[in-house]
Amino acid sequence: MLADVVAAVEKYHVQMWEAIGETFVMVGIATLAALLLGLPLGTLLYLCRPGQRFQNRWFFALLNGLVNVIRSFPFLLFVVFMIPVTRWIVGTSLGTLAASVPLAFVAVVYYSRLVEQALLDIPRGIIESAVSMGATKLQLIYKFLLVEARSGLVVGMTTSIISFISYSTVMGIVGGGGIGDFAIRYGYQRYETVIMVVTIVIMIILVQSIQLTGNWISRLIDKR
């Protein structure tokens, strides 16, 4: 059995490393989008929701509805639906970069919900104390909200990255490649069961590594 695994890896190692690289590109772009756009969006959802200090019902309804609509799409249908937008943004609807566009959109709304939830877990007393000390909106966000929620934000990002990896495995439908596409093309379609098993093991190791790292960072920065 071990000899079969070694032989299969040697036979497809170039394609395997290429697929892993494509997965890292897609997940990396999605993670960056989640941090740069999902974090502010989730914070805005929290600040504007009814009952919060800067509540704005109409603005919250607009943002909340947009997030809900995108999250309601089955991911495969969303990828197909986004093809015209993807082609407009990157000039093509095929390839790893093109596949990263719908994944990035999903990443933003997915992480924004986790950010909103992490902020909702902050005791109201902390916010009231910040306001009573004369904190501005920016100070309230950066020196109180994000600081208090940092552990939850890391846990949310860890969960998000694992989900992004899962989403990326279906990107073969738009020529995005990745480890999932590799497993289908070189494992399933060629009846190479060993390749399927190796791919699954790689995914398990990758996901477990991310989860353990995220948990460790969360415990490290949690000062509560």
Rank of each mutant, 00 (worst) to 15 (best):
N56Y: 06
F24M: 15
Q211D: 12
L41G: 02
Y111S: 03
T136W: 06
G175K: 02
V101H: 01
L146E: 10
T169I: 05
F54Q: 13
Q189S: 11
M196L: 15
V69E: 12
I141N: 08
Y111P: 10
I126V: 14
Y12L: 12
D181I: 05
Y111A: 03
Q211W: 06
V14T: 14
W88V: 09
G178L: 03
S168G: 06
N215T: 00
V201R: 08
L2F: 15
I165P: 02
Y167Q: 07
F164I: 12
S166C: 07
V67E: 01
F164P: 03
V194N: 14
S166M: 09
R150K: 14
T199F: 04
F144I: 02
L62D: 11
F81K: 11
A130V: 08
A98D: 02
S209G: 11
V201S: 07
G125V: 10
T23L: 06
A183G: 10
S166Q: 07
L140H: 07
L153Q: 08
E148W: 00
G180R: 01
G125A: 08
I205R: 03
Q117C: 03
L32I: 15
L103C: 11
L41Y: 04
I173T: 09
M26A: 03
A98C: 06
V197W: 14
A130P: 11
M157A: 12
L94T: 12
Q139Y: 02
A135I: 02
I70M: 15
S112T: 01
L140I: 05
K137W: 08
I127Q: 15
A130Y: 11
I202C: 10
A3G: 12
H13M: 10
M1Y: 15
S166N: 08
E192I: 05
D4V: 11
I126G: 02
V154Y: 03
I165V: 15
P50R: 00
F144G: 00
L138E: 09
N215D: 10
Y186Q: 11
I83V: 15
R57Q: 10
S166I: 09
I173R: 00
S209W: 08
G28R: 09
